[in-house]
Amino acid sequence: MSTYGTPGAGPAAHDPSTLPSDDNVDHYTFCVELTGSQWFMQKGKMIAYYGSIEFNGIGHGRLDRLVRTSFHSPLHASDWVVAEGSGKMLLADRAFDVNSYDLEDGNLTIRSGNLLAFQPSLSLKQSIVPGFLTLIGTGKFVAASNGPVVFMEPPVRVDPQALVGWADCPSPCHHYDHGYLTGVMGGLRALTGLGGASGEEHQFEFVGAGTVLLQSSETLMAEQATGVTPGEPGVPGSGAPGGPGQPSGAPRLPGQLGDLQRRFGL
């Protein structure tokens, strides 16, 4: 970082001997040391490197075995590359805060757009929750967030836009402020936004043992495709019919109250 107030002083110059190994250079840049090892990373997040490092798409034949053991999100593979070689590599993402986390025989679910890179000792899977990815195992991963990350203990209710991820299986579910939303007036308020909707009637609720990760802003990171789930009945987000009793996916006409009708018994 710059030394403020000192005339003429720029940022301190780094070279491979002063760059940290698998740690942050500053809040926005992370340095990965490769010693013949491999890291999975999102496409195009490398900003500079010393040494000789090769970037290969997941589809690369030589990486088949590695992908089989630590990458279980096949339809999402085109967004990821494997960095391989020896040297030090700097990762950054649109000047967002980046942080590394250590998992020890644990699990963590994270919004797909926030995950930047991870060690192959972890395995990456699609979460049942659409738009989220789950990392399982032991190792280090790097995630970006809009503003520094805050850790919370359940029970906690969080704003959907501030949620980055959660670890160790607290149960994520939706929570609505029904006291505010019920009744005809509440329905109208929710539908039209007139009469003072606070914009906070809907939250995610977490209970159980674990940790919830929040970013300190409500600006979402751009979503990364997590790949489509197999189109089987019973798989959330697969687009397959869920079986008998489910509402049909008929397009809602303007002016129609839609599922609010059901909710308020109209």
Partner: peptide
């Protein structure tokens, strides 16, 4: 975002992404 200053010396050549 704050710039990172990287030193290049004969034993340590550097490779940079053009966008950064």
């Amino acid at each position: 975002g704050p710039a990172v200053l990287l030193r290049v010396s004969p034993q340590y050549p550097l490779t940079v992404d053009p966008g950064a």
